[in-house]
Amino acid sequence: DLRKKIVDLHKSGSSLGAISKRLKVPRSSVQTIVRKYK
């Protein structure tokens, strides 16, 4: 699940930009998912 991957990467200390590059999703999507998770 993409959300879980993003949250896991964020927990392990990756920046939003790094996560978005790695998973090839827009940075804004990463930000939204991380914000919802918090």
Rank of each mutant, 00 (worst) to 15 (best):
K5D: 05
K11A: 08
S15N: 05
R35L: 07
R3H: 13
T32M: 12
H10L: 13
S28P: 06
D8Y: 12
S14R: 10
V7Q: 06
R3W: 15
K21M: 06
V34R: 00
L16R: 03
I33R: 04
R27T: 06
G17E: 11
D1S: 14
S28T: 10
S12N: 11
V7D: 02
D1N: 12
L9M: 13
L16D: 05
I6S: 00
S29W: 15
S28W: 12
V25F: 03
H10Y: 15
S12V: 06
K38V: 10
T32F: 08
I33H: 05
R3F: 14
R3V: 14
Y37R: 05
R35V: 06
K11L: 14
Y37D: 06
R27F: 14
K5E: 07
H10F: 15
P26W: 04
R3Y: 14
S20M: 04
S29D: 10
H10T: 04
R27G: 04
K38G: 10
R35A: 11
G13S: 02
Q31H: 06
T32W: 09
V30M: 02
Y37G: 06
D1H: 11
K4Y: 08
S29T: 15
L9W: 05
G17S: 14
K21H: 08
P26F: 01
I33N: 04
R27N: 04
K36I: 09
V30Q: 02
R27Y: 14
A18H: 08
P26A: 11
S15W: 02
V34A: 03
K4T: 09
R22D: 09
L23T: 05
R22W: 08
S28K: 14
S28R: 12
I19E: 00
D8W: 13
K36W: 14
K5S: 08
S12R: 11
L9Q: 04
S20A: 14
S29F: 15
R3C: 14
K21S: 07
L2H: 05
L23H: 01
S20R: 02
S20V: 08
K11Y: 07
L9Y: 05
I19T: 01
K11Q: 09
S20Q: 02
H10C: 12
S12E: 09
I19V: 02
R3E: 13
G13D: 01
G17M: 10
D1W: 14
R35T: 08
R22S: 12
S12M: 12
R35K: 13
V34Y: 00
G13L: 02
K4F: 08
T32S: 13
G13C: 06
V25S: 03
V25Q: 05
L2I: 11
S12Y: 06
S29A: 13
S15Q: 03
D8S: 12
I6N: 00
S12W: 07
K38N: 09
A18G: 06
K36A: 11
S28F: 08
P26T: 09
H10A: 07
V34M: 05
P26N: 08
A18Q: 13
D8V: 09
K11N: 11
K36H: 10
S15T: 08
S15Y: 00
H10W: 15
K4A: 10
G17R: 15
K21L: 06
R22E: 14
K21P: 03
R27W: 07
V30S: 04
K11F: 08
I33L: 03
I6R: 01
Y37K: 05
S20E: 03
Q31T: 08
Q31R: 15
Q31N: 08
S14T: 11
I19F: 00
S14L: 15
K38D: 09
K36F: 08
K4Q: 12
V34F: 00
K36T: 07
I19P: 01
V7S: 03
H10E: 02
A18D: 13
G13T: 01
G13I: 03
G13W: 00
T32R: 15
L2K: 06
Y37P: 05
K5Y: 09
I19L: 01
H10P: 00
S29M: 15
R27K: 13
K11E: 09
K36Y: 12
S14M: 15
K4R: 12
S14N: 12
R35N: 11
P26H: 08
V25T: 04
K4M: 10
L23M: 07
L2D: 02
K21A: 08
K24W: 04
D8G: 08
Q31K: 14
L16W: 04
R27D: 04
Y37T: 07
S15L: 03
K38R: 11
I33A: 08
Q31W: 06
K24N: 14
I33T: 07
V30H: 04
L2N: 05
V34P: 00
P26L: 05
L9T: 01
I6A: 02
R35Q: 11
K4L: 08
P26S: 13
S12H: 10
D1Q: 11
V30R: 03
G17Y: 08
V7G: 02
K21T: 07
I6G: 00
L16K: 04
K24Q: 12
I19N: 00
S14Q: 14
K24E: 07
K38E: 12
P26G: 07
K5R: 13
V25H: 03
S14W: 15
K5T: 10
L23F: 05
I33K: 04
K24H: 12
D8R: 10
A18V: 08
V30T: 01
G17D: 11
K4S: 09
K11S: 07
R22I: 15
P26R: 09
L23P: 02
R22Y: 12
V25I: 13
K24L: 09
S20F: 00
D8M: 14
G17N: 15
L23R: 01
L2P: 04
V34D: 03
I19S: 01
S14G: 06
I33E: 05
D1A: 13
G17T: 15
H10M: 10
K5A: 12
S28N: 10
S20Y: 00
G13F: 00
V7Y: 09
I19K: 01
P26E: 05
R3I: 15
I19Q: 00
Q31S: 12
S29V: 15
V30G: 04
R22N: 11
L23E: 03
R35G: 08
R3Q: 10
S28E: 09
G17H: 14
P26C: 07
A18M: 10
L9V: 00
T32V: 14
V25P: 01
K11C: 15
S29I: 15
S29Y: 15
L2Y: 06
H10S: 04
K21N: 08
R3N: 08
S28I: 08
G13Y: 00
V30F: 00
Y37N: 06
R27S: 04
K36N: 10
L9H: 02
D8I: 12
T32G: 12
I19H: 01
V7P: 01
G13V: 01
S28Q: 12
K5W: 11
R22T: 12
K4G: 06
K38S: 10
K11M: 13
K21Y: 01
T32K: 15
L9C: 09
L2F: 07
V25L: 08
K21F: 02
R22V: 11
V30E: 02
S20D: 01
S20P: 00
S20H: 04
I33V: 13
L16H: 06
V25R: 02
K36D: 11
K21I: 09
L2G: 03
H10Q: 03
K38M: 13
I33C: 05
L9N: 02
K36M: 10
K24R: 11
L2W: 09
S28G: 10
D8H: 10
L9S: 03
R3L: 12
K38A: 11
S14A: 15
Q31E: 13
K24P: 02
L9D: 02
Y37S: 08
D1V: 11
I33F: 00
L16A: 10
T32N: 14
S15G: 09
D1I: 12
A18E: 14
L2T: 06
T32L: 14
K38Q: 12
V25M: 08
